[in-house]
Amino acid sequence: MEGEEISKYFLKIIEHEDVSVGIAAIRTLMEIINKTASTTVQGLDENIKDGISIMKRSHYPVAAIDSGCELFVRFITLTRLDTHFEECKRIMLKRGNLYLKHHNRSRNTIVTSASKLIGDGVRILTHSRSRVVLQTLREAAKQKRKFEVYVTISEPDKSGLELCKQLEIDGIPHVAILDSSVGYIMEQIDFVMIGAECVVESGGVVNKIGSYTMAVCAREMNKPFYVLTESFKFSRLFPLGQQDLPLEYKYDNYSNSTDFKKVHPLVDYTPPSFITLLFTDIGILTPSAVSDELIKLYL
C-alpha cells in the first residue's frame, strides 16, 4: 500500500462511518498488514511504522491515532512467532480482528455503565463532541430519563455545535454555552462528563482544549468530573504539565511553524487529581488504576 492509498483509506473510514479516530487507525493498519508487499516480519514492521506516520499527518488528533496504534501493535505482536512469514501474518491478522471485535463492543460497555449516572432532573455539562458521551446521552434518553445537557461551543472548530445538532435530532434538551462561561454555568450543573483523546500513564487525560479549565472549575465547586473512554486510548505518555505534552499533540501540522507562542494549542492535559472516575470498557477506574492496567499490558 502506498502513502496516498493509506491516507485515503483512513479518511474514508472516518468520514463515512461513525467510528472514533483510534479505531479507524487500527483498521487502516489491518489493511496495511493484509496488503503488504514485504515478505519479512521486519519489512512489515517498517510498513506499519510508515502507515502510522502517514496517518499522523492528517488533521485528525494525533493523540488518538498514537495511542490506538501503539496498543494495537503491542497486542498483535505480543507473541511474535518464529514460523513462516505467511503464518505469522495470519496470526497477526487474527489477533487484530479479535482486538477490533473487542473494541467495537467496548463502547457499549461504557454506555451501559455510564448511563446509570443520568437520573431524572440531572443537569450535565459536556465539552466538545465525544461519541461515547453522545451515545450515553442517547441511551439515557431511550430509558425515558428527563435531563438537560449543557454543551460548550468548543472553539476553534465549534465541535460543540455538532453535538448540539445531534442532540436536537434525538430530542434531548440541550443548551449551547460559550467556552468562557464554564465557570458561570458550573454552579448549576450536577456533574461533568467528557470523552478523551488519550488517557496517559498518570491517569490524567489529554482532550480538546478547554477540558482542563472545566476540570479546575469542577474541582473548585466540588462537582464530579467523569471521563468516558475506551481502553485502547490508554497511552504510555507521562506528561508533567501542559508544557511537557508532545508538540505534535498540541499543534496541527506542527512541523510547519516554529514559533508556538502565537499558535493556539488543540489539546490540553488534565491531571489525575481533577478526575473523579474513568468509565472504560475494562471497568470503572480511578485515575491511579490506569497505570496499573498499563503496567499489566506492557511489562
Partner: peptide
C-alpha cells in the same frame, strides 16, 4: 504520594500509587 508527580523507575515513569503493581509484576 500526593506530593509527588511521578516516580521514575527503570520500567517506566509511573505515578506513586503504582508501586504495588510493580511489586506484583516483578
Amino acid at each position: 504520594a500526593f506530593l509527588i508527580t511521578a516516580v521514575v523507575t527503570e520500567l517506566a515513569i509511573l505515578p506513586c500509587t503504582s508501586v504495588p503493581v510493580v511489586l506484583r509484576v516483578k
